[in-house]
């Protein structure tokens, strides 16, 4: 080593060393090499126990999907339930019997066979109601009042026994302005209706006209 030649460094090398001594530069370098600390020995046990107890975290999409599925299923079941209740009503068959709670206990005729065994069973639910109905049992029959309509007295009129409403009798009271000529001849219309409506006043005074006619009448004499 003694025989080897020596080399001189660059003149700027000292300045470069000083630059590295700069606080900012040192800080940048040393901050990447900070010492590490070790946690407590039982740190893992705490993490493991927390992992075992904590529920798994679901993502938002999973939560949304689960909510949607639940909604659809509940809607579907609701629709199904509604359809069942509407479409299939319980049929009222003759063979089916319904228990009806009657406030008054009715004495049923003792019948033979299977039915008698059923009817002999005393109802337990209507015990309270039976107490009430016992009072009703003692009631006596009440006579229903007779309802009758009142008789209306109408005044009687003396009607002429010979009176026939279909028969028309001409009288001075029944005088009319209508004149009816009836002929039974062959030919035209058999009924002619003449009315005095719209005729001049003169026509309505036949007495005066006839007098005038008699005075101006032309007498024609036929000779044999």
């Amino acid at each position: 080593m003694k025989n080897l030649p020596q080399h001189t460094p660059k003149s700027t090398s000292w300045e470069k060393i000083l630059q590295q001594q700069d606080f900012e530069a040192q800080l940048e370098k040393v901050s990447l090499d900070l010492p590490n600390y070790a946690p407590k020995a039982n740190a893992w046990e705490g993490i493991a126990s927390q992992l075992d107890t904590e529920k798994p975290i679901f993502s938002i999409w999973q939560k949304l999907a689960a909510a949607m599925v639940f909604l659809v299923v509940s809607l579907f079941t609701w629709v199904l339930l509604n359809q069942n209740t509407e479409s299939a009503p319980e049929p009222n068959l003759i063979t089916q019997t319904q228990e009806i709670s009657i406030p008054i206990s009715i004495e049923k005729p003792i019948s033979e066979g299977k039915e008698s065994s059923k009817e002999n069973v005393k109802p337990t639910i209507l015990e309270k109601e039976n107490k009430r109905t016992k009072l009703n049992k003692t009631l006596t029959e009440v006579e229903t009042p007779f309802i009758a309509l009142p008789t209306i007295v109408t005044p009687q009129k003396n009607i002429d026994p010979t009176y026939n409403p279909k028969q028309f009798t001409a009288s001075s009271e029944n005088k009319s302005l209508h004149e009816v000529d009836i002929s039974w001849g062959k030919g035209r219309s058999k009924v002619k209706v003449k009315t005095a409506f719209g005729k001049p006043v003169e026509e309505l005074q036949p007495n005066q006209k006839s007098q005038m006619a008699s005075s101006k009448a032309i007498q024609i004499r036929f000779k044999n």
Partner: peptide, 22 residues
């Protein structure tokens, strides 16, 4: 060590750093 050192250096408290680690 990496996680605990970061937490401990930021908080300067051992218990809190352990909570953060967990």
């Amino acid at each position: 060590r990496m996680v605990y050192s970061l937490a401990f250096r930021m908080l300067d408290d051992e218990d809190m750093a352990h909570d953060v680690l967990q």
